[in-house]
Design a protein around this nucleic acid. Structure first.
Lengths: 112, 112
DNA sequence: AACATTTGTTCTAAATTATAAAACAAATAG
DNA sequence: CTATTTGTTTTATAATTTAGAACAAATGTT
């Protein structure tokens, strides 16, 4: 099992966070809040599909709501595999950020 | 400033961690310890160069050592910009992982 | 000296991923 | 019935990752 890319991780976390409201456009908005950057639509839908194809997410289509323009949404939910992948990436992350030396260390480059 | 990819983050963290021993092959080995995966040589050298070109790292060449086959190494060091990018990615990361609801939440998919 | 081995970097082609933007679809408001 | 809104799909392009071969220089062996 390969380690998740950052985009994949953030999308899976958004699905987790949004619970029953995890669908494309909502995920996109949540991501832009998390990162402070606006993403294109494709930047969300394309990886969402990939994550589903690989078994990290499952999906189903809702009935349309009665909001202005509200039409049927494709909701996503984490699978067990998705949760496992998140745990793995978190563990790698914590590992990588631990036991770092003081940032101010200093040495003289051995110039040629 | 765009958010770092995971590979970029892990490489910058390796440079930080390895201090005076931050050069290609050593970084590669450190990464394989961190992630549990073996990386190809190109998987490290290619992003290292990009990170330098973008100003996240600076580099200089050492004199050869006296080890068997030991030849000159290209050492890397974090720049201020590199440190800043790491701080940014850490903050996004912590944000994304906080305030997550219990994973066991449950609901009935509105089947069509 | 000649050759193999080790440590190390560079190059490059292929696969994967990210991104923007346009197209498409369906619902509601007027 | 037309415009607007919410939403997904498609597609073309750019950027990144990756594997692997090529290259380079130093040391060890015979």
């Amino acid at each position: 099992m390969n380690i998740l890319s950052r985009m994949e991780e953030l999308i899976l976390l958004s699905v987790w966070k949004l619970q029953t409201e995890a669908y494309g456009l909502e995920i996109r908005q949540h991501l832009s809040e998390l990162t402070g950057q606006d993403l294109s639509v494709g930047a969300v839908y394309v990886p969402l599909k990939r994550l589903k194809k690989r078994g990290y997410l499952e999906a189903w289509d809702s009935e349309p709501t009665d909001e202005r323009g509200g039409r049927s949404k494709r909701f996503y939910k984490l699978t067990q595999k998705g949760i496992g992948a998140l745990q793995q990436v978190k563990s790698v992350q914590e590992n990588a950020w631990s036991n770092l030396p003081d940032i101010g260390f200093d040495w003289t480059p051995a110039k040629s």
